[in-house]
Design a protein around this nucleic acid. Structure first.
Length: 422
RNA sequence: GUGAGCGUAGCUCAGCUGGUGGUAGCACCGGGUUGUGGCCUCGGAGGUCGUGGGUUCAAGUCCCAUCGCUCACCCCA
């Protein structure tokens, strides 16, 4: 019985890792253009942290986390709670009034895996803490859009407002009574949802439920003055930045902590998992976690989903590329080449060499496979003449190069030649 | 937790109503080129047909069980 990775946990093989590195590089660059600084966080946290932030009674906390009950600790299901915990713990708010932070790493969910939905998944998470102005919402959303644009990924943007503790409860009551009147025309899941999570009925996939819900009261009509004003400004500021969006009054978030602005980047190319990135405002959460009364907003991008889209949409990515492949013919030449290769690497070159003493043909093939820009051929003849053949693999031009002096000197002049030549 | 589908070479897959596992494609190794890659050509290696049981003269193929994977539902971070 071969040992395999456990279900829902996936290896990212080298060919795919290239895509991930590219994605991460673009993301870091953009996050930093917006002034965000990286924060690295632990993967395990006290279970209580997630219970208090995500919501004690949510399915996530009740049954979908990787928890060690005897230890009272949990593998983080999302980044925001951990980030805020660290923010509060270290009093980062005293450093500057507004903090922009990002973190990239694995998260865990204990659920049946499906397409674009693994038990270990990865997110790129950005949070802006300490600012409640609608411009900040628009700026953050625009940053998400910029990231997807620069990765070459097309997705639509939907936004909504969930109101605040002032106006949401009223809307909730309104909605529940609306739904109860139509209880018999809703699917069984929605019938149950009326009691457990009525807002969820709004984005049920069942066509019957969808049509029933068309006439449901809109959260956007129920917003209090300040929330209504905030949302209007977010929309206006998105327009000022030229970010296209559509308002989806049915969009709901599963976490208890969201307030006001919520948004999702959506694609139709990933089966049932349409959201590739999502976020929202969480004014009040930091205080609830025992920190200062500061507002916050953030979003997370799902890296697996982005990687799948990059693959589907064939986003160009650089292949592997070695500067030089050293093909030595025979033991004597190999003995000479071995330290030379080491010196070339110290000079900063990416150098490969075969150690199995195979034919030149086989070694040339290998040079092609690692996409080497040049191949240095050293045989007994060359060795005697203190020279070698340098082949440009693209132009197929070859030149004889001297191998004189110490190994370091040889490496030095070779490195210069290879660099000038490419 | 629920439902459906699928497990044949490293990967992608043929294999019709049971009758000896495919010159299949990609990848790998070697020859054609006694010292020159990609293209071409010839050859080679590589398999407990997921596992266990059953039916049968005979099972990759049919039946049962089991494990694994995938997609979807619930939920959604």
């Amino acid at each position: 019985m071969k040992i395999k990775a456990i279900n829902g946990f996936k290896d990212i093989l080298p060919d795919e890792a290239v895509r991930w590195q590219y994605m991460e590089g673009v993301a870091r660059d953009i996050f930093e253009r917006f002034g965000a600084r990286e924060i690295r966080l632990p993967i395990l946290e006290k279970t209580e942290l997630f219970a208090r932030s995500i919501g004690e009674a949510t399915d996530i906390v009740e049954k979908e986390m990787y928890t060690f009950p005897d230890k009272g600790i949990t593998m983080r299901p999302e980044g925001t709670a951990s980030l805020l915990r660290a923010f509060i713990e270290h009093g980062l708010h005293v450093q500057q009034p507004v903090q922009r932070l990002y973190t990239i790493g694995p998260m865990f969910r204990h659920e049946r895996p499906q397409k674009g939905r693994l038990r270990q998944f990865h997110q790129m998470d950005v949070e802006v803490i300490g600012a409640s102005e609608p411009r900040v919402d628009a700026e953050l959303i625009a940053m998400g859009r910029m990231l997807l644009d620069e990765l070459g990924i097309s997705a639509s943007l939907e936004i909504n407002s969930l109101g605040c503790p002032e106006c949401r409860p009223g809307f909730r009551r309104q909605l529940v009574s609306f739904l109860k009147e139509r209880r018999d025309r809703l699917c069984r899941d929605c019938d149950r949802r009326i009691d457990t999570n009525p807002l969820r009925v709004l984005d049920c996939k069942n066509p019957d439920c969808r049509s029933q819900v068309q006439d449901a009261p809109s959260i956007l009509d129920a917003l209090c003055g300040p929330c209504d004003d905030h949302f209007a400004h977010v929309c206006r500021n998105l327009e000022a930045l030229g970010v296209a969006y559509s308002v989806n009054r049915f969009m709901v978030r599963g976490l208890d902590y969201y307030t006001r602005t919520t948004f999702e980047f959506i694609t139709g190319d990933l089966g049932a998992q349409a959201a590739i990135g999502a976020g929202g405002r969480y004014d009040g959460l930091i205080e609830q976690l025992g920190g200062p009364a500061l507002p916050g907003i953030g979003f997370a991008m799902g890296m697996e989903r982005i990687a799948l889209l990059m693959e589907q949409q064939e986003v160009a990515r650089p292949g592997p590329r070695m500067d030089l492949f050293v093909a030595a013919l025979g033991e004597k030449a190999a003995g000479h080449a071995f330290p030379l290769v080491h010196q070339l690497r110290r000079q900063g070159l990416k150098v490969a060499m075969d150690h199995s003493g195979r034919s030149l043909k086989a070694q040339m093939k290998q040079a092609g496979r690692v996409n080497a820009a040049h191949t240095l051929i050293i045989g007994d003849n060359e060795l005697q003449q203190q020279e070698a053949i340098l082949r440009n693999m693209e132009t197929r031009e070859q030149e004889t190069v001297p191998l004189q002096g110490t190994v370091t000197e040889q490496a030095h002049s070779l490195a210069r030649r290879v660099r000038d030549n490419s």
